[in-house]
């Protein structure tokens, strides 16, 4: 029972004025405790405000990204519609057979703005190391227009818009050939997929 050893020293009467001070300090809520609570409350408020601000910032950033994406998509749709509806736009559709598969190529050619929109569907994927190459047919021969590579496993529908360069001159038709993956720089060398006059 060593707990009782605390009574070994002789008792000492505290100074009388200590009594009120000690009892007063004991029963009143501690100043430190109040500060702890205040600090905790302030930290909580700051935490909530900070969390709210962080959430709002993240939400605003996500919504801004969505808005930008939708705006870009809308602009693309508007551009495509403007392209299709343009008074100088001619449309040509040509059936093609690639590797035994029947597909088609649709060409929207805007001669006023010198822009083309080419849409391919149902075409066979390219062999490894090969690509489809589109050509402008001009009075001066064929000029390279664009490469449209169709890899296995990808969608069989592909669309591409591109400009007709000024140095190409008047375009009278379109053609597509199968070329090495890097494309042919001067004239078609591989098998022709189609050749048509617009």
């Amino acid at each position: 029972m060593t707990d009782w050893l605390g009574m070994t020293p002789n008792p000492r009467d505290p100074r009388p004025e200590l009594r009120a001070r000690v009892l007063g300090r004991a029963v009143r809520p501690s100043r430190r405790g109040r500060w702890v609570w205040r600090a905790a409350a302030a930290a909580l408020v700051l935490g909530i405000a900070g969390g709210g601000a962080y959430w709002a910032r993240g939400t605003i950033a996500a919504l801004s990204a969505d808005r930008d994406r939708l705006a870009a998509e809308l602009a693309a749709v508007r551009d495509t519609l403007g392209f299709v509806r343009g008074p100088a736009t001619r449309v040509a559709w040509v059936p093609v057979t690639t590797n035994g598969r029947l597909g088609g190529v649709t060409i929207f050619a805007d001669s006023a703005n010198r822009r083309w929109l080419v849409r391919c569907e149902g075409m066979a994927p390219n062999e490894p190391g090969e690509t489809y190459q589109i050509w402008f047919v001009t009075e001066g021969g064929m000029k390279r227009a664009a490469l449209m590579t169709m890899d296995p496993g990808e969608s069989t529908v592909m669309a591409m818009a591109f400009a007709v360069p000024e140095d190409v001159g008047p375009v009278v038709g379109a053609a597509m050939s199968i070329e090495p993956r890097a494309g042919s720089s001067v004239e078609p060398r591989g098998p022709m997929v189609f050749h048509l006059r617009l």
Binding site: M7, N10, P11, R12, D13, V22, L23
Partner: peptide, 13 residues
């Protein structure tokens, strides 16, 4: 306090 303060103070001292 009245009963124990002298003992607590004695021990602490």
């Amino acid at each position: 306090y009245d009963a124990l303060a002298p003992w607590v103070l004695g021990l602490a001292s």
